[in-house]
Design a protein around this nucleic acid. Structure first.
Lengths: 109, 109
DNA sequence: TTATTAAATCGCAATATTACGATAAATGTT
DNA sequence: AACATTTATCGTAATATTGCGATTTAATAA
């Protein structure tokens, strides 16, 4: 095993889980925070900011890109990454739907 | 390796990542949705609802309990699980802080 | 063309996660 | 006490994730 049984759950449950999962690593949180602060930035700047190797950061960027939370465009020899606003809008609304109910649900046990 | 270098990131980044990570599996999303719908429910009911074995669900419940998103109290022979409202309030505000900025950040690349 | 720089990908090792059956622990019932 | 029920834990197997160095790829510069 070691494999998530995605086929046993709904499309919506899998999508939401994938979004959360992509944000479930401190390096990826740090990357997002950097992009929010700088609006956009070159991959190399992120590598300088974070205490991880270039190849490791490249992998984290790829995972964030896979779920659409960020996008990157080639600008000459380097790649400029930024927040993919529209996906965040959708992600936030999905997450909010759940969280808004959760914070109003009394803990009755 | 295979080990996240948590010590290289801030407490806040690790906490946020751990919350997201706990929600980063469709079974755990499904469990939360069930608890939101029923307000509270016995472990066995969740096992009946989801297409996973009893032991697997017990592990997912333990992970959600570890980060505090749910809590369980023993009632006779069974355990009643419910949303831990106060932790969700804190989690939501942390997540919102990031997401509110993200949805307003223009995609400039 | 030949270098130089930037980023992605490959290959690998270590650890983590997912899942299940079997077993154990705890409670309630007969 | 003996049994049934419920949930947690153990042991194990398969796969995934994390991380790094080395290499490759792509684009510019000399």
């Amino acid at each position: 095993m070691g494999t998530t049984k995605s086929d046993k759950f709904t499309e919506q449950q899998n999508e939401l889980a994938n979004l959360f999962k992509a944000l479930g690593h401190p390096a990826r949180i740090a990357i997002i925070q950097t992009l929010l602060k700088r609006q956009a930035c070159v991959c190399g700047d992120i590598v300088e900011d974070l205490p991880l190797s270039q190849s490791t950061i490249s992998q984290h960027l790829a995972e964030l890109k896979k779920v659409g939370l960020i996008k990157g465009t080639i600008t000459g020899p380097s790649v400029c990454y930024c927040i993919n606003e529209s996906v965040w809008v959708k992600a936030k609304s999905e997450m909010d739907k759940m969280m808004a109910i959760a914070v109003k649900t009394p803990s009755i046990c």
